[in-house]
Protein backbone atom coordinates (compact mmCIF):
# COMPACT_ATOMS: atom_id res chain seq x y z
CA UNK A 1 0.00 0.00 0.00
CA UNK A 2 3.00 2.23 0.32
CA UNK A 3 3.15 4.28 -2.78
CA UNK A 4 6.50 5.99 -2.50
CA UNK A 5 6.08 9.69 -2.26
CA UNK A 6 9.45 11.34 -2.41
CA UNK A 7 9.51 14.49 -0.27
CA UNK A 8 9.64 16.94 -3.13
CA UNK A 9 6.89 15.40 -5.20
CA UNK A 10 3.77 16.91 -3.60
CA UNK A 11 5.19 20.41 -3.89
CA UNK A 12 6.20 19.83 -7.47
CA UNK A 13 2.74 18.74 -8.50
CA UNK A 14 1.18 21.53 -6.48
CA UNK A 15 3.42 24.04 -8.23
CA UNK A 16 2.45 22.83 -11.67
CA UNK A 17 -1.04 21.40 -11.41
CA UNK A 18 -1.82 22.14 -15.04
CA UNK A 19 0.80 19.69 -16.27
CA UNK A 20 -0.77 16.73 -14.48
CA UNK A 21 -2.84 14.71 -16.94
CA UNK A 22 -6.46 14.19 -15.99
CA UNK A 23 -6.35 10.42 -16.52
CA UNK A 24 -3.37 8.39 -15.65
CA UNK A 25 -2.92 4.65 -16.15
CA UNK A 26 -0.57 4.29 -13.21
CA UNK A 27 0.77 6.33 -10.38
CA UNK A 28 4.42 7.33 -10.78
CA UNK A 29 6.84 4.97 -9.09
CA UNK A 30 10.61 4.73 -8.83
CA UNK A 31 10.78 0.96 -9.20
CA UNK A 32 11.64 -0.64 -12.54
CA UNK A 33 9.95 -3.46 -14.42
CA UNK A 34 6.33 -2.36 -14.49
CA UNK A 35 5.89 -2.60 -18.25
CA UNK A 36 7.70 -5.92 -18.51
CA UNK A 37 5.91 -7.68 -15.66
CA UNK A 38 2.45 -6.31 -16.40
CA UNK A 39 2.85 -7.07 -20.09
CA UNK A 40 3.91 -10.63 -19.37
CA UNK A 41 1.11 -11.09 -16.83
CA UNK A 42 -1.59 -9.89 -19.20
CA UNK A 43 -0.21 -11.86 -22.16
CA UNK A 44 0.11 -15.10 -20.17
CA UNK A 45 -3.30 -14.63 -18.58
CA UNK A 46 -4.89 -14.06 -21.99
CA UNK A 47 -3.17 -17.02 -23.57
CA UNK A 48 -3.85 -19.57 -20.82
CA UNK A 49 -7.16 -18.43 -19.37
CA UNK A 50 -9.03 -15.69 -21.20
CA UNK A 51 -8.81 -16.80 -24.83
CA UNK A 52 -9.69 -20.47 -24.14
CA UNK A 53 -12.63 -19.46 -21.92
CA UNK A 54 -13.81 -16.92 -24.48
CA UNK A 55 -13.57 -19.63 -27.12
CA UNK A 56 -15.92 -21.79 -25.07
CA UNK A 57 -18.55 -19.07 -24.92
CA UNK A 58 -18.12 -18.17 -28.59
CA UNK A 59 -18.43 -21.82 -29.45
CA UNK A 60 -21.69 -22.02 -27.51
CA UNK A 61 -22.93 -18.86 -29.24
CA UNK A 62 -22.69 -20.59 -32.61
CA UNK A 63 -25.27 -23.17 -31.50
CA UNK A 64 -28.79 -22.33 -32.52
CA UNK A 65 -31.12 -21.64 -29.62
CA UNK A 66 -33.51 -24.64 -29.86
CA UNK A 67 -30.54 -26.98 -30.12
CA UNK A 68 -28.94 -25.34 -27.07
CA UNK A 69 -32.13 -25.61 -25.02
CA UNK A 70 -32.59 -29.26 -26.00
CA UNK A 71 -28.99 -30.01 -25.07
CA UNK A 72 -29.24 -28.51 -21.60
CA UNK A 73 -32.73 -29.68 -20.67
CA UNK A 74 -33.06 -33.29 -21.75
CA UNK A 75 -34.37 -35.59 -18.98
CA UNK A 76 -30.96 -37.19 -18.49
CA UNK A 77 -29.32 -33.78 -18.14
CA UNK A 78 -32.00 -32.54 -15.74
CA UNK A 79 -31.50 -35.64 -13.59
CA UNK A 80 -27.77 -34.95 -13.50
CA UNK A 81 -28.42 -31.33 -12.40
CA UNK A 82 -30.65 -32.55 -9.60
CA UNK A 83 -28.03 -34.96 -8.36
CA UNK A 84 -25.11 -32.53 -8.73
CA UNK A 85 -26.79 -29.55 -7.10
CA UNK A 86 -28.61 -31.65 -4.49
CA UNK A 87 -25.58 -33.66 -3.41
CA UNK A 88 -23.36 -30.57 -3.39
CA UNK A 89 -25.89 -28.73 -1.21
CA UNK A 90 -26.26 -31.61 1.26
CA UNK A 91 -22.51 -32.11 1.44
CA UNK A 92 -21.95 -28.39 1.99
CA UNK A 93 -24.56 -28.44 4.79
CA UNK A 94 -22.86 -31.38 6.48
CA UNK A 95 -19.57 -29.54 6.14
CA UNK A 96 -21.04 -26.31 7.51
CA UNK A 97 -22.15 -28.20 10.62
CA UNK A 98 -19.09 -30.37 11.20
CA UNK A 99 -16.62 -27.87 9.77
CA UNK A 100 -17.85 -25.36 12.32
CA UNK A 101 -17.42 -27.94 15.06
CA UNK A 102 -13.89 -28.77 13.88
CA UNK A 103 -12.94 -25.08 13.70
CA UNK A 104 -14.40 -24.48 17.15
CA UNK A 105 -12.58 -27.40 18.75
CA UNK A 106 -9.29 -26.50 17.05
CA UNK A 107 -9.43 -22.86 18.17
CA UNK A 108 -10.97 -23.11 21.63
CA UNK A 109 -9.81 -26.39 23.17
CA UNK A 110 -6.52 -28.12 23.72
CA UNK A 111 -5.99 -31.83 23.28
CA UNK A 112 -3.11 -34.13 22.33
CA UNK A 113 -1.89 -34.05 18.71
CA UNK A 114 -3.90 -30.91 17.99
CA UNK A 115 -1.31 -29.66 15.48
CA UNK A 116 -1.42 -32.93 13.56
CA UNK A 117 -5.21 -32.84 13.47
CA UNK A 118 -5.06 -29.22 12.31
CA UNK A 119 -2.66 -30.08 9.48
CA UNK A 120 -4.73 -33.11 8.51
CA UNK A 121 -7.75 -30.93 7.77
CA UNK A 122 -6.03 -29.85 4.54
CA UNK A 123 -5.70 -33.45 3.35
CA UNK A 124 -8.59 -33.23 0.85
CA UNK A 125 -6.71 -30.39 -0.87
CA UNK A 126 -3.45 -32.28 -1.04
CA UNK A 127 -4.75 -35.74 -1.89
CA UNK A 128 -5.33 -36.20 -5.63
CA UNK A 129 -9.03 -36.61 -6.29
CA UNK A 130 -8.70 -39.96 -8.04
CA UNK A 131 -6.90 -41.38 -5.00
CA UNK A 132 -9.64 -40.06 -2.75
CA UNK A 133 -12.23 -41.55 -5.08
CA UNK A 134 -10.91 -45.10 -5.21
CA UNK A 135 -10.15 -45.06 -1.49
CA UNK A 136 -13.65 -43.91 -0.53
CA UNK A 137 -15.16 -46.51 -2.86
CA UNK A 138 -13.06 -49.22 -1.20
CA UNK A 139 -13.80 -48.07 2.34
CA UNK A 140 -17.57 -47.95 1.80
CA UNK A 141 -17.92 -51.10 -0.30
CA UNK A 142 -19.67 -54.09 1.30
CA UNK A 143 -16.42 -55.55 2.66
CA UNK A 144 -14.64 -52.23 3.26
CA UNK A 145 -13.62 -50.84 6.65
CA UNK A 146 -16.76 -48.75 7.07
CA UNK A 147 -18.99 -50.54 4.58
CA UNK A 148 -18.92 -53.80 6.54
CA UNK A 149 -20.69 -52.00 9.41
CA UNK A 150 -23.00 -49.81 7.31
CA UNK A 151 -24.19 -52.29 4.69
CA UNK A 152 -25.75 -54.74 7.24
CA UNK A 153 -27.64 -51.75 8.63
CA UNK A 154 -29.09 -51.18 5.19
CA UNK A 155 -26.99 -48.10 4.48
CA UNK A 156 -25.58 -48.47 0.99
CA UNK A 157 -22.99 -45.78 0.33
CA UNK A 158 -20.82 -47.10 -2.48
CA UNK A 159 -22.31 -46.84 -5.98
CA UNK A 160 -25.37 -44.85 -4.84
CA UNK A 161 -26.30 -41.19 -4.58
CA UNK A 162 -25.27 -41.25 -0.94
CA UNK A 163 -21.79 -42.06 -2.21
CA UNK A 164 -21.78 -38.80 -4.17
CA UNK A 165 -22.65 -36.91 -0.98
CA UNK A 166 -19.87 -38.68 0.94
CA UNK A 167 -17.27 -37.87 -1.73
CA UNK A 168 -18.33 -34.22 -1.89
CA UNK A 169 -18.26 -34.00 1.91
CA UNK A 170 -14.67 -35.23 1.86
CA UNK A 171 -13.70 -32.74 -0.86
CA UNK A 172 -15.43 -29.75 0.75
CA UNK A 173 -14.39 -30.34 4.36
CA UNK A 174 -11.47 -27.85 4.53
CA UNK A 175 -13.42 -24.92 3.10
CA UNK A 176 -15.66 -24.30 6.10
CA UNK A 177 -12.94 -25.06 8.66
CA UNK A 178 -10.43 -22.74 7.02
CA UNK A 179 -12.86 -19.86 6.60
CA UNK A 180 -14.35 -20.04 10.11
CA UNK A 181 -11.07 -20.76 11.92
CA UNK A 182 -9.30 -17.38 11.39
CA UNK A 183 -12.43 -15.39 12.26
CA UNK A 184 -12.93 -17.39 15.44
CA UNK A 185 -9.26 -16.88 16.34
CA UNK A 186 -9.59 -13.11 16.05
CA UNK A 187 -12.87 -12.97 17.90
CA UNK A 188 -12.62 -10.78 20.99
CA UNK A 189 -13.34 -12.85 24.07
CA UNK A 190 -14.33 -9.66 25.88
CA UNK A 191 -17.73 -9.81 24.22
CA UNK A 192 -18.34 -13.27 25.63
CA UNK A 193 -17.11 -12.14 29.02
CA UNK A 194 -19.48 -9.19 28.94
CA UNK A 195 -22.36 -11.51 28.08
CA UNK A 196 -21.38 -13.84 30.93
CA UNK A 197 -21.19 -10.88 33.31
CA UNK A 198 -24.67 -9.82 32.28
CA UNK A 199 -25.92 -13.24 33.22
CA UNK A 200 -26.24 -14.90 29.83
CA UNK A 201 -25.91 -18.64 29.73
CA UNK A 202 -23.19 -20.15 27.55
CA UNK A 203 -25.74 -21.30 25.02
CA UNK A 204 -27.38 -17.87 24.86
CA UNK A 205 -23.97 -16.25 24.38
CA UNK A 206 -23.24 -18.67 21.59
CA UNK A 207 -26.50 -17.97 19.80
CA UNK A 208 -26.64 -14.22 20.29
CA UNK A 209 -22.97 -13.20 20.27
CA UNK A 210 -20.85 -15.81 18.53
CA UNK A 211 -23.12 -17.15 15.85
CA UNK A 212 -24.01 -13.73 14.32
CA UNK A 213 -20.32 -12.80 14.23
CA UNK A 214 -19.32 -16.08 12.61
CA UNK A 215 -22.27 -16.32 10.24
CA UNK A 216 -20.61 -14.57 7.26
CA UNK A 217 -17.59 -16.85 7.48
CA UNK A 218 -19.84 -19.87 7.82
CA UNK A 219 -21.86 -18.77 4.82
CA UNK A 220 -18.71 -18.20 2.77
CA UNK A 221 -17.36 -21.61 3.69
CA UNK A 222 -20.67 -23.23 2.83
CA UNK A 223 -20.77 -21.50 -0.56
CA UNK A 224 -17.16 -22.38 -1.37
CA UNK A 225 -17.78 -26.02 -0.49
CA UNK A 226 -20.96 -25.95 -2.57
CA UNK A 227 -19.21 -24.37 -5.56
CA UNK A 228 -16.39 -26.88 -5.36
CA UNK A 229 -18.91 -29.71 -5.17
CA UNK A 230 -20.67 -28.57 -8.35
CA UNK A 231 -17.54 -29.05 -10.43
CA UNK A 232 -16.01 -32.03 -8.69
CA UNK A 233 -15.30 -35.03 -10.89
CA UNK A 234 -12.41 -37.26 -9.84
CA UNK A 235 -13.50 -38.30 -6.39
CA UNK A 236 -17.15 -38.77 -7.34
CA UNK A 237 -16.99 -41.02 -10.40
CA UNK A 238 -15.43 -43.94 -8.54
CA UNK A 239 -18.01 -44.07 -5.79
CA UNK A 240 -21.12 -42.92 -7.68
CA UNK A 241 -21.94 -45.91 -9.83
CA UNK A 242 -22.61 -43.53 -12.74
CA UNK A 243 -26.00 -44.92 -13.76
CA UNK A 244 -27.71 -42.48 -16.17
CA UNK A 245 -30.77 -40.77 -14.67
CA UNK A 246 -29.82 -42.05 -11.22
CA UNK A 247 -26.25 -41.53 -10.12
CA UNK A 248 -24.64 -39.60 -12.95
CA UNK A 249 -23.18 -36.14 -12.21
CA UNK A 250 -23.10 -33.31 -14.74
CA UNK A 251 -19.30 -33.26 -15.05
CA UNK A 252 -19.35 -36.91 -16.09
CA UNK A 253 -22.12 -36.20 -18.58
CA UNK A 254 -19.95 -33.49 -20.18
CA UNK A 255 -17.14 -36.00 -20.64
CA UNK A 256 -19.55 -38.65 -21.94
CA UNK A 257 -20.92 -36.25 -24.53
CA UNK A 258 -17.41 -35.28 -25.57
CA UNK A 259 -16.43 -38.92 -25.97
CA UNK A 260 -19.51 -39.48 -28.15
CA UNK A 261 -18.31 -36.58 -30.36
CA UNK A 262 -21.29 -34.50 -29.26
CA UNK A 263 -19.08 -31.41 -28.92
CA UNK A 264 -22.04 -29.04 -29.14
CA UNK A 265 -23.84 -30.79 -26.29
CA UNK A 266 -20.73 -30.83 -24.12
CA UNK A 267 -20.14 -27.13 -24.79
CA UNK A 268 -23.71 -26.21 -23.94
CA UNK A 269 -23.58 -28.13 -20.65
CA UNK A 270 -20.20 -26.60 -19.78
CA UNK A 271 -21.59 -23.10 -20.35
CA UNK A 272 -24.53 -23.81 -18.04
CA UNK A 273 -22.24 -25.12 -15.29
CA UNK A 274 -19.79 -22.22 -15.70
CA UNK A 275 -22.59 -19.67 -15.49
CA UNK A 276 -23.94 -21.45 -12.41
CA UNK A 277 -20.60 -21.27 -10.61
CA UNK A 278 -19.90 -17.68 -11.68
CA UNK A 279 -23.40 -16.70 -10.59
CA UNK A 280 -22.84 -18.41 -7.26
CA UNK A 281 -19.59 -16.53 -6.68
CA UNK A 282 -21.28 -13.25 -7.53
CA UNK A 283 -24.04 -14.08 -5.06
CA UNK A 284 -21.51 -14.80 -2.30
CA UNK A 285 -19.80 -11.47 -2.90
CA UNK A 286 -23.10 -9.60 -2.87
CA UNK A 287 -24.20 -11.34 0.32
CA UNK A 288 -20.96 -10.48 2.05
CA UNK A 289 -21.14 -6.89 0.88
CA UNK A 290 -24.69 -6.65 2.16
CA UNK A 291 -23.75 -8.28 5.45
CA UNK A 292 -20.82 -5.95 5.95
CA UNK A 293 -22.96 -2.90 5.39
CA UNK A 294 -25.67 -4.14 7.70
CA UNK A 295 -23.27 -5.07 10.47
CA UNK A 296 -20.68 -2.38 9.91
CA UNK A 297 -20.46 -1.88 13.68
CA UNK A 298 -19.18 -5.43 14.08
CA UNK A 299 -16.88 -5.00 11.12
CA UNK A 300 -13.92 -6.67 12.76
CA UNK A 301 -15.61 -9.93 13.62
CA UNK A 302 -17.88 -9.95 10.63
CA UNK A 303 -15.35 -9.12 7.97
CA UNK A 304 -14.90 -11.42 5.07
CA UNK A 305 -12.66 -14.19 6.26
CA UNK A 306 -9.41 -14.63 4.48
CA UNK A 307 -8.98 -18.31 3.89
CA UNK A 308 -5.23 -18.35 4.18
CA UNK A 309 -3.80 -21.78 4.00
CA UNK A 310 -6.72 -23.01 2.02
CA UNK A 311 -4.81 -22.41 -1.13
CA UNK A 312 -6.91 -24.43 -3.46
CA UNK A 313 -10.09 -22.54 -3.01
CA UNK A 314 -12.16 -20.29 -5.12
CA UNK A 315 -11.47 -17.11 -3.28
CA UNK A 316 -14.45 -14.86 -3.53
CA UNK A 317 -13.74 -12.55 -0.68
CA UNK A 318 -10.43 -11.38 -2.10
CA UNK A 319 -12.05 -8.55 -3.98
CA UNK A 320 -13.45 -6.99 -0.82
CA UNK A 321 -10.27 -7.56 1.08
CA UNK A 322 -7.93 -5.94 -1.32
Amino acid sequence: MSTPTLPHRPQASAAAPSRRPAWRFRKPNALPGFGLTLGFTVAYLSLIVLIPLAALFLNAATLDWPHFVRAVSSPRVLASYRLTFGAAAIAALVNALFGFLVAWVLVRYTFPFKRVVDALVDLPFALPTSVAGISLAAVYSANGWLGQWLVPLGIQVAFTRLGVVVALTFIGLPFVVRTVQPVLEEFEREQEEAAACLGASRWLTFRRILLPALAPALLTGFSLAFARGLGEYGSVIFIAGNVPMKSEITSLLIITKLEQFDTAGATALAVVMLLASFGLLLLINLLQWWWQRRHSNTAIQGRAPSARGVGLIVETESADER
Partner: peptide, 27 residues
Amino acid sequence: FEFRGKSLLMTLIDLPFSVSPVIAGLV
Protein backbone atom coordinates in the same frame (compact mmCIF):
# COMPACT_ATOMS: atom_id res chain seq x y z
CA PHE B 1 2.54 -0.43 -8.55
CA GLU B 2 -0.79 1.34 -8.54
CA PHE B 3 -2.63 1.22 -11.82
CA ARG B 4 -6.10 1.20 -13.30
CA GLY B 5 -7.95 -2.06 -13.53
CA LYS B 6 -5.86 -3.72 -10.83
CA SER B 7 -8.74 -5.37 -9.00
CA LEU B 8 -10.14 -6.63 -12.29
CA LEU B 9 -6.77 -8.17 -13.08
CA MET B 10 -6.69 -9.90 -9.69
CA THR B 11 -10.19 -11.25 -10.17
CA LEU B 12 -9.18 -12.64 -13.56
CA ILE B 13 -6.09 -14.28 -12.06
CA ASP B 14 -8.33 -16.12 -9.57
CA LEU B 15 -10.72 -17.17 -12.32
CA PRO B 16 -9.29 -20.67 -12.95
CA PHE B 17 -10.22 -21.67 -9.38
CA SER B 18 -13.88 -21.19 -10.15
CA VAL B 19 -13.76 -23.21 -13.36
CA SER B 20 -14.40 -26.88 -12.74
CA PRO B 21 -11.55 -29.19 -13.86
CA VAL B 22 -13.56 -30.97 -16.53
CA ILE B 23 -14.47 -27.65 -18.13
CA ALA B 24 -10.83 -26.54 -17.95
CA GLY B 25 -9.91 -29.58 -19.99
CA LEU B 26 -12.85 -29.06 -22.31
CA VAL B 27 -11.83 -25.51 -23.31
